[in-house]
Every structure is written in C-alpha cells, then in structure tokens.
Amino acid sequence: MASSSRLKPGEKGKIRVEVNIRGKFGNIMKTVQVHTNDPQRPQTILSMKMKIKDLIHMKKYKAAEIFSGACKICHVDRGRGRKGFDLFINDCMMCHNTAKSASPLAALRAKNKEDVERAIREGVQKTSMPGWDARHSGPLFEEEIRSLIDYIRPVSKVGQAN
C-alpha cells in the first residue's frame, strides 16, 4: 500500500488506502495504523470518513419487485430454508424493525391475527409490503407462512374470549 517502505531523510511518499464499500451504506469511518521506526511516534493513525448514499433503495419500487432481479439476493435468498423466528429475522426484520419503514414486531403482535395473516399472504396495498404467499407469486410456501404467523402470534380480536 505504501509507495516505498523506506524513505530517506527529506523524501516524500504516498500511502494508498483502498476501502471496500460494496453493499454498505450510511456513515462509514475507517482507520489505518501506520507503524514506523519514528522514535517519537511509532504509531500514527490515518482516518477516512464518508457517507455512502443508498442508490438501491432510493427508487420507489413496486412491492413484488423485491422478489426478482438484484433485490432477490437480500429479500428472498436470505430466508430460504428458514422458519419462524429465523425466517422473521432474515426476511422481515430488514423493514419490520424499530426506526425502519414498517411496524416493528411489538406493533405487529398488537394487531388482529387475520389482518397479519392477510398482510403476509397478499401484501398491503399502497405500501412496500409484498404478498409472500407462493399463491400470490411470493417466495414462501404454506409451511413457511404458518411458521411466521406462529412466531408473530397475534391474538385474534374476533375470536377472543373475555
């Protein structure tokens, strides 16, 4: 990374630093420690900061688009073969998280069970929530959908006994 590892008195050089930012966004800070034979300061820290703009999520997509193309890598593939909590973490948490775009888990649990089930299967109109059920062109099959509903377990207000 350095143009030369030895500099004569008065000589100038360069240290090249490359930062891999693939798949990252937001504010990033990177440092590199430089160890030399300088007796006064054997270690010096170089630091770099940047703000990476998220181009992928800037465009408004149709809900179902996240199941195809490049979006699929995160929105479908991560959840493959998983169920329940594990599936929720991989497929749902990226949006259903506090401070994110969709209702967090606690809010989902406070909802009516039928509404939650319908939202998972068919998606929610005018929002970015897609329909996950394979019968509505989603990536999840019955067993996986059931495992999600069981994990979220909202109490049905309709059939609630008081």
Partner: peptide, 8 residues
Amino acid sequence: EHFFEIEN
C-alpha cells in the same frame, strides 16, 4: 481509494 502524502 485515497493517497495519503507522507514525508520523512
């Protein structure tokens, strides 16, 4: 990438 200029 960035080049930090150094000097002895």
